[in-house]
């Protein structure tokens, strides 16, 4: 078990009751260390999204235990009162589509999260610009999302996921809309950011071209995870 990153034990999620109950997650165990990027793959309906929603504190697991860093956030019940603040401060999200706020420019899209947490606007923008520079999109800082290419939008979305320095980032098919070159570039960026900010990143994907880049992969099928670690896996 790691002291940082994310660690989950025997996590279960059941939908419905009685005869109609469906066990979407069955005693899932997973550990992602700080600075590590792991893949979570599986066919449709295998429980990937359910696991991601449980990790993201969007839905309630039925049982199990989750830790973010040293903090137990779930132990057969939420241990955190304000799940919204938990999502805002401790968990970063990167989606299949960038889902940038169309009426905010690039800087404010990234700076919005720290602003919501009460950080003064100028400091939040400075923090956003630092990340945009790290992701090499600082030259589009004042552009509107509609003026960006797909790859640029996804980099801005990654910057938004990282801006509050969360211990964990959940990336839901972040390369799906991108071509091979851009998809690999995004994975490279996620690896760089994970190392630089010591963030644990879980990437849910179907994308065959990026699967070989993960050093560790969790396969999920019928709500059960299997870990795969391979020599020669991984790409920087």
């Amino acid at each position: 078990m790691t002291a940082k990153g994310i660690h989950i034990e025997r996590l279960s999620k059941r939908y419905g009751e009685g005869d109609t109950a469906v066990l979407a997650l069955k005693n899932v165990n997973m550990t992602v260390a700080p600075g590590e990027v792991v893949g979570l793959i599986g066919p449709s309906g295998s429980g990937k999204s359910t696991l991601l929603k449980c990790l993201g504190a969007v839905i309630d697991p039925t049982a199990g235990r989750m830790m973010l860093g040293d903090e137990v956030i779930y132990d057969d019940g939420w241990k955190v009162r304000d799940l919204r603040a938990l999502r805002r401060d401790k968990i970063g999200f990167v989606f299949q589509a960038p889902y940038l706020i169309p009426f905010l420019d690039v800087t404010d899209n990234v700076a919005l999260l720290p602003m919501l947490a009460g950080v003064p606007n100028e400091r939040a923008r400075a923090r956003a610009l630092e990340l945009l520079t790290a992701l090499d999109v600082q030259h589009r800082a004042n552009a509107m999302p509609s003026q960006l290419s797909g790859g640029e939008q996804q980099r801005v979305a990654i910057a938004r996921g990282l801006v509050n320095r969360p211990p964990v980032i959940l990336a839901d098919e972040p390369t799906a809309p991108l071509d091979s070159q851009r998809a690999l570039a995004v994975i490279r960026i996620l690896n760089d950011m994970a190392r630089r900010y010591q963030t644990a990143i879980i990437v849910v994907t179907h994308d065959e071209k990026i699967i070989p880049t993960f050093k560790r992969i969790y396969h999920i099928r019928d709500g059960v995870t299997h870990e795969e670690v391979g020599e020669g896996r991984g790409s920087d």
């Binding site: 919204r84 603040a85 805002r88 989606f95 889902y99 169309p102 919005l112 919501l116 947490a117």
Partner: peptide
């Protein structure tokens, strides 16, 4: 709707 879902997911309060 999608932007509102994202805003809520990343921790925006209902009152905001």
């Amino acid at each position: 709707i999608r932007e509102i879902a994202v805003l809520k997911l990343i921790g925006t309060r209902n009152r905001t």
